Measured scan of single mutants.
Amino acid sequence: MKTQEELTEIVRDHFSDMGEIATLYVQVYESSLESLVGGVIFEDGRHYTFVYENEDLVYE
């Protein structure tokens, strides 16, 4: 089982391919040991929310 830090790094690596990240945040109250819920804001102003669970990243 991966730690929350490892899950965060996986998500950061994925989004870094889309541009320069200004902020990546995790909603700790919605996340667990198996899933990571949060959002990412890019330097150009784009903002996505995401759920990473079971090695699957869903964002909008």
Rank of each mutant, 00 (worst) to 15 (best):
D17Y: 15
N54K: 15
V26Q: 02
R46T: 07
E34D: 08
E6M: 10
K2P: 06
D56M: 15
S32A: 12
S31F: 09
K2Y: 06
T8K: 08
L24P: 00
V26I: 14
E6V: 08
E34L: 11
H14G: 05
F50C: 01
E53F: 14
Y48R: 00
Y48A: 02
D13M: 14
V51T: 12
V28P: 06
T8E: 14
E34N: 14
V37K: 15
E6P: 03
T49Q: 06
E20V: 14
E55N: 14
Q27G: 08
T49G: 04
G45K: 04
E30P: 05
S32H: 12
E5S: 11
Y59M: 09
M1A: 11
V28K: 15
T49S: 11
E30I: 15
M18D: 03
E5H: 11
F15H: 00
E55S: 11
V37H: 10
I41G: 03
Y25K: 03
S32F: 09
F15Q: 00
L24W: 05
T49N: 06
S31Y: 13
L7Q: 04
L24R: 00
V37F: 07
V40L: 04
K2M: 09
A22L: 10
E43V: 14
V28D: 07
Y48M: 06
L57G: 02
S32W: 09
F15E: 01
Y29D: 05
I21T: 02
G19P: 02
R12I: 08
V28C: 10
S16N: 10
E43C: 12
H14A: 13
K2T: 05
R12Y: 10
M18G: 03
M18C: 08
V26D: 01
D13Y: 15
V11H: 01
G38D: 01
H47G: 04
V11R: 01
V58S: 14
V51P: 00
V11M: 05
L57A: 02
D56V: 15
A22S: 11
E9W: 12
A22K: 14
L36S: 02
E6T: 07
V37N: 06
E55M: 12
L24H: 01
G45L: 04
E5R: 08
Q4H: 06
F42A: 00
V51Q: 07
V58T: 12
E9Y: 09
E55Y: 11
L24C: 04
S16Y: 07
D13E: 12
A22P: 01
D17M: 15
T3Y: 04
E34S: 14
H47W: 11
T23A: 12
T23F: 11
L33F: 10
H47P: 00
G19Q: 02
I10M: 10
L57E: 01
H47V: 07
E20L: 12
Y25E: 04
G19C: 03
F42V: 00
V58P: 01
M1I: 12
H14R: 13
M1Y: 14
S31W: 12
D44T: 03
L24F: 10
E5Y: 10
R12T: 06
S16V: 09
L36R: 01
F50Q: 00
G19K: 02
F15Y: 03
V51H: 12
L33P: 13
E30V: 14
F42L: 07
V40E: 00
V58A: 09
S31P: 12
L24I: 11
Q27D: 08
T8C: 09
Y48F: 11
D17R: 15
S16G: 08
T3G: 07
L24V: 08
E6S: 06
H47K: 08
L57M: 07
I10Q: 07
G45C: 05
S35M: 12
V58F: 14
V28Q: 13
S31R: 08
Y48D: 00
Q4T: 06
E53C: 11
H14S: 08
G39L: 11
E30Y: 07
S35D: 03
E43T: 15
M18P: 01
A22Y: 10
V11C: 04
I41D: 03
T23M: 10
I41T: 06
V26K: 02
E20A: 13
T23V: 13
I10R: 10
I10A: 07
Q27C: 13
E9G: 10
E60F: 13
S16E: 08
E9K: 14
D17G: 14
A22W: 09
M18A: 04
Y48G: 01
T23E: 08
F42E: 00
I10S: 05
T8I: 11
L36H: 01
K2V: 05
S16F: 06
R46K: 06
F50M: 00
N54I: 05
N54S: 09
E6W: 07
E60P: 03
E30G: 08
M18E: 04
Y29N: 07
L36N: 00
G45P: 01
L7N: 03
F50H: 00
E60R: 15
Y25N: 03
Y29E: 06
I41Q: 05
H47I: 07
Q4S: 06
E55W: 09
T8D: 03
G39I: 14
E53M: 14
G45A: 04
R12W: 13
R46S: 07
F50Y: 06
S31E: 11
G38Y: 03
F42N: 00
